[in-house]
Amino acid sequence: MSESLADATQIGGTPNSSDGPPPVTPVAPGGNADPVTSNVLYADHITIRFGGLVAVNDVSFAIPPKSVISLIGPNGAGKTTFFNVLTGLYEASEGTVYLNGKDVTPIKPHKRAAMGMARTFQNIRLFGLMTAEENVMVAMHPHLKSGVLSTIFRTPGQRREEREARDTARELLEYVGIGKAEGELARNLSYGDQRRLEIARAMALRPKILLLDEPTAGMNPQESQQFNDFVYRVRDERDMSVLLIEHDMSVIMKISERITVLDRGNLIAEGTPDDIRNNQTVIEAYLGKTGTREGKRNKS
């Protein structure tokens, strides 16, 4: 227990043992930076109650720019509920959500999407009857400007905008690796391609933060590795932060700069992968208090 304490409070970074993300320096409280404006996404003391139940209890959460953060926890931890509050699907009972320095708590999901928060879904929710290209173009809605009249009369401006949108869509499809599938109906794509399409679609929103809900579910190890590389590329090339909900520990440990752990609505741990790996509370939360024999398995 004391080791992880030392790790967590160490100023100056902890070299990660794997060839993973660059080291992360937590800034101790009392520093000059305002968490609201220096983070892409900042959730401040979020509590979510349904009737008398507290699903999420006073959780604060920060995602800096160009970072990869994971949110993990056993089943029933409140991860999805919390995710839904971040994206605006649920209203928090208490607390505030800041996106790019602005308070988005009262703002509806579609506006948050337009402001730069994009997500994928745990059970893929593509528009099956539209082509891959069209799926991506739907997400460009906030960034396109043509109105009803210019659409009816196919003004040069509208036509140009459509052309550019199609080009951007194709480029995004190439970027995620399914460039050849642009004319294919989304429901006819393979599972892996559908996952990629969902990400391409989310990226069409030009987000500052990409929220991925169990993106590697159903992937084999090779695909998971491809996914890891992809996440780094996205973070570095596209200036985005990525927030993942995941259960696959190998992906989490390799890819995350920081990990937040929830259990039954409470934030029980927060730190680098090494911190979490050794954290007794986390291990117990996942496995119950039935001894640490299984705990050793948790180290990826």
Binding site: V24, P26, P35, E257
Partner: peptide
Amino acid sequence: MATLVVGGTKRKAKVRLGP
């Protein structure tokens, strides 16, 4: 080097005007 800035601010919980 990515820096993580987290601080518990004592911002008051907003009363939801809606209900």
